[in-house]
Design a protein around this nucleic acid. Structure first.
Lengths: 161, 161
DNA sequence: GTAATTGCAAAGGATTTGCAACAGT
DNA sequence: ACTGTTGCAAATCCTTTGCAATTAC
């Protein structure tokens, strides 16, 4: 059991929500992974542990985890969401996403955090979480001569220059 | 007709794609709006113009517009996408999104652009577009005592502090 | 003319929801 | 005991796709 489960239990209690076995197991799967997990990934992991938990419960638990701030929700444009807990080596980080091969590279940026605080403060906004995603072509795909494509066609243009 | 349509035509020709009436009208709707348009919004606008264009065509056209870089795709967590052309008063901008009332506030940040270039250059990545979204509570919702909610319940906690 | 697009409706895929049985407090 | 959750399947919602008719080049 991940020690972070404690934080989740605490959150649930503070919210007056029952701490159920299902919620704990689902959270444990997420806290024990360093990946960007899809609901399907989580389901598979649960199956691997011999847990029989309905997909609806996974969705419902992920919603709570995201609200709690313990887990981040990502949408990398794949048509479904991915989840990642916030206790990895990279506490807060941003993403570089290759639109060709879907490779995701993470990086940290103190500047972004500063921007987040400044922009929020200036407007009386209370920031809870953020995401910076930079889309483009990774070095491998550029080397392979790949460009962006639509129905088999190629190459985005810098129309604005 | 928005002057930006020209850029779209140019893009289509460069890609060897037919410049159809439908594509032009859909693009015109987007270029003439300063909003974050959903597919439904676009459909309604077209209907208002008396255009009878299938939803599938709108989706297909938006895909091309996004690839061209003339239009940005957003996902504000509503379960569907929104689109915004890149010729507004705010050429490139970031978003503050209230998780309670869904209000979206835009702001510009040269620092984010610098981070984008630096982080990309450092990894041989070729950036095409990016998005920075900061989620939290707007000043109004804070004033109203609103917090984040789940199934009618309240209040997120700073579990990490 | 040829190749690609359009529009419709059907299909697809992720997520949500209704409800009876069940678990947490 | 009471209230909220779970699990299943059905429903929902956005988006994609197949295909015959149509349009761009």
């Amino acid at each position: 059991m991940s020690p972070f489960i404690q934080l989740f239990r605490r959150y649930l209690r503070e919210q007056g929500l029952p701490v159920t076995q299902q919620r704990e197991v689902v959270a444990d799967v997420v806290f024990n992974s360093l990946e960007h997990l899809s609901i399907e990934d989580i389901e598979a992991d649960l199956k691997g542990r011999g847990e029989r938990i309905g997909k609806a419960t996974i969705y419902r638990t992920m919603e709570i985890l995201v609200r709690s701030g313990l887990v981040e929700e990502h949408d990398f444009g794949e048509g479904f969401k991915r989840y990642e807990h916030r206790f990895g080596q990279q506490p807060v980080h941003e993403h570089l996403i290759c639109t060709s091969c879907s490779k995701v590279t993470e990086f940290q940026s103190p500047e972004v955090l500063r921007v987040r605080e400044e922009a929020s403060a200036m407007r009386g906004f209370r920031p809870v979480r953020h995401r910076l995603e930079i889309y483009g072509l990774c070095s491998d795909c550029q080397a392979r001569g790949v460009t962006v494509s639509y129905q088999g066609l190629t190459c985005p243009v810098d129309l604005m220059n």
